[in-house]
Amino acid sequence: MIAELLWQPFVDYGFMRRALAGCLALSAGAAPLGTILLLRRMSLVGDAMSHAILPGAALGYLLFGLSLPAMTIGGLAAGLIVAMLSGVVTRYTALREDASFAGFYLISLALGVLLISLRGSNVDLLHVLFGSVLALDDPTLYLTATIASLSMLGLALVYRPLLMECLDPGFLRLQGPMGSISHALFMLLLVLNLVGGFHSLGTLMAVALVVLPAASARFWLRGVGLQMALSTAIAMAGSLLGLLLSYHAGIAASAAITLSLGCLYLLSLCLGRLGSVRAQRQRPANDSVSEPMGVSE
């Protein structure tokens, strides 16, 4: 009975296996980035960035149709341009990072919608926004897996400076340009994952994989590395649950996955060990920090 509920769908249907493989790969790449985003208070940047890549992907679609390389490169370019421009504006004008980014991503999003409305129909726009995780073909799967690998590798490289830049940017600045380099690399990895995710889950849902698992993990573990590992696990679990939900209850796949992730988040929010609703109510009045743990890394 359990087998029928949990495993049978994947045994019977190739498209379910591919969807799961794609989501697992995406989780491995995107979820750890979410932890960093959370730490740097950039969670909304993730969502904004997923909109920012739209005109690039739309341009690729307009010129080359539903072509994987074209839309990937286009999305990458658009995301990086927005990140760069907002960085420049932050540096040389009075605007801070959040406002400058907001300005550019909104322009980018509008451009994307305009481009799509020029040639495509509303259907095409919906596909771009919502993706088709059930339609993952080989090239898309390879792309997602490659992005995940690159992402994990890249994250390992810049893990320390990234954390330092978040923790004590002044200190890192003295040591050299590592801070800004690692920030740039991090943004690159983020855009890469969003572009990879948007082929399968669509722009709107891809960011769910980045933010929701990381936010959930925050309520269970303290150490950064452990949070990353847990958020990856949560992302994978949410993907599995979502696919099963889509199979048994007939809900659209990417929405089902996002809802599952959302439920896991709400559960963590209410019942988690650290700083959740339950934990806040249980702690004594003068203890503001949780119990000490072993060395984090």
Binding site: Y13, A19, V123, L134, S246, H248, A249, G250, A252, A256
Partner: peptide, 15 residues
Amino acid sequence: STESEPSARDLAALV
């Protein structure tokens, strides 16, 4: 259906 995303159940039924 056309515009909205298919669910896994619909796709499985078709297969």
